[in-house]
Computed example of a mutant assay.
Amino acid sequence: MTMINTVDETSLTASPTERRNSLEKHLLNRPDPQDLKERHILLDTNVAPSIQAASQGLARQRTSDSLKKHLEHRPDREELVERNILPHTNAAPALQAPARELEKHMLADHLDQKIQNRPQPEVLISQGILSEEEDPRNPPI
């Protein structure tokens, strides 16, 4: 049931009948308990109202204890780095992505340089590293 936001404008000097009618009208439009539970105004519990506060306190304490237990068993930074969950760098998080990009580009440049400076197949054949059959310039038969 949707609550209608109205202001009771019944005068304080109104007759008791008018005030009672106004109250009855507002009581008819008040939200039902399920709506109040969905809006977290009423607690959704079967616990007696006299022990609801203690029940909430115990639930909070149980959650707190669970969090503490999990935090105590949390792996340390070195283990997370070892398992490749955290990066090996100590750089600020804002600098980690650019650092990875730079490292990737440096590796690509290094590989390009190595490929450009590799020996020709005839040099490798003359040194006995490759045989004539392994010459990459000859198409396979």
Rank of each mutant, 00 (worst) to 15 (best):
K104V: 03
D32F: 13
E79P: 10
K104S: 13
D65L: 09
A97Y: 07
R19P: 00
V123R: 00
E122L: 00
T13F: 12
V123A: 05
S64G: 02
P140G: 04
L12R: 06
E38Q: 15
E78C: 03
A14C: 15
P93D: 12
S22G: 09
E82F: 08
K69I: 09
P87T: 02
A91H: 09
G128Y: 03
H88K: 10
T89I: 07
D35P: 01
P16K: 04
Q34N: 13
L58C: 04
L71R: 13
Q52A: 11
I125W: 00
R74F: 08
P119I: 01
A91V: 10
T89N: 13
S64N: 04
R30D: 06
Q61Y: 07
E82W: 05
S15V: 03
A99N: 07
H70F: 14
H40W: 03
N5I: 14
L111N: 05
Q116W: 03
R77V: 10
L130T: 07
L23K: 14
L28W: 04
D35S: 08
A97E: 08
D65N: 11
H40G: 09
D44F: 01
D76H: 15
E103N: 15
T13P: 02
R74D: 11
M106D: 10
H26M: 07
A99I: 14
D8P: 01
A99R: 05
E132W: 03
A48I: 01
Q113Y: 10
D135Y: 02
S15G: 14
E78S: 10
Q116R: 12
S11F: 07
Q56S: 12
R62V: 10
K68D: 12
A14S: 15
A108P: 00
S64Q: 08
S55H: 11
S66F: 05
P31M: 00
H110C: 08
I41W: 08
S66G: 05
V7R: 09
A92K: 14
N5H: 13
I129A: 06
Q96C: 08
S64E: 07
K114G: 02
L42F: 13
S15W: 07
L111Q: 04
Q116E: 10
H70Y: 13
L58K: 07
L42N: 06
R60S: 15
R77D: 13
A99T: 01
P136Y: 01
E24K: 05
T89E: 10
M3C: 04
L95S: 12
K69L: 12
L12T: 06
I4H: 09
M1W: 01
Q52W: 12
L107G: 04
D35C: 03
R62A: 12
M3P: 00
H26W: 00
I129W: 07
A14W: 12
R118A: 03
P140S: 06
T89R: 07
P140E: 05
I125L: 03
H70I: 15
A53R: 11
T10Y: 02
L124G: 00
Q127W: 00
K114M: 15
P75Y: 15
P16L: 04
N29M: 14
R77T: 10
D44T: 04
K25W: 09
D135V: 02
P139L: 01
S11M: 11
R19A: 01
E101R: 14
G57M: 11
H40M: 06
N90T: 11
V47S: 14
M106S: 11
K68N: 09
R118T: 06
L43P: 00
L95Q: 14
L28Q: 06
K69R: 13
L86R: 01
K104H: 15
G128R: 03
N29W: 14
